[in-house]
Amino acid sequence: MTIGVPGSEVALETSRLLLRPWRVAEAVVQRELWTERDPRVPPHRRIDADGHPTVEELENSIRNDELWSTGLLAVERKATRDVIGYCGLVDSGRGSAGEPELAFELLRRVWCQGYATEAALAVLEWATASGYGRLWATVWDWNTASRRVLAKVGFTETERREVDAVYGTTLFTTKQL
Rank of each mutant, 00 (worst) to 15 (best):
M1S: 14
I3T: 15
P6W: 05
G7I: 03
E9D: 14
V10P: 08
L12D: 14
E13Y: 00
S15D: 15
S15V: 00
L17Y: 10
L19K: 05
R20N: 08
P21Y: 04
W22S: 09
V28Q: 06
Q30N: 13
R31E: 08
E32D: 11
L33W: 08
L33S: 01
T35G: 05
E36S: 03
P39F: 11
R40L: 14
V41L: 10
P42I: 11
P43N: 06
H44N: 13
I47E: 02
H52W: 01
V55T: 12
L58I: 05
L58R: 04
R63N: 05
N64S: 15
L67A: 13
G71P: 04
L72I: 04
L72H: 03
L72W: 02
L72A: 09
L73M: 11
L73H: 08
L73N: 06
L73K: 06
A74L: 14
V75I: 14
V75T: 06
R77W: 05
R77T: 12
K78N: 07
D82G: 01
Y86V: 07
G88W: 06
R94T: 15
G95R: 10
S96I: 05
A97C: 00
G98Y: 04
E99P: 01
L102H: 05
A103K: 05
L106A: 03
V110E: 02
C112A: 14
Q113D: 02
Y115R: 03
Y115M: 03
A116K: 06
A116H: 06
A122Q: 05
L124K: 03
L124C: 12
W126N: 07
A129N: 12
G133T: 09
R134S: 13
L135R: 06
L135G: 03
A137K: 09
T138M: 10
T138K: 07
N143H: 15
S146C: 11
R147V: 00
R148L: 07
R148M: 09
L150V: 06
L150F: 12
L150M: 11
A151F: 06
A151G: 13
V153A: 11
G154P: 04
F155M: 11
F155K: 09
T158V: 10
T158C: 08
E159K: 13
E159A: 15
R160Y: 12
R160G: 01
D164E: 03
D164R: 00
D164V: 01
A165L: 14
A165P: 07
Y167F: 15
Y167S: 15
T170M: 13
L171T: 05
F172Q: 09
T173D: 00
T174Y: 05
T174M: 04
L177K: 02
L177W: 01
L177E: 01
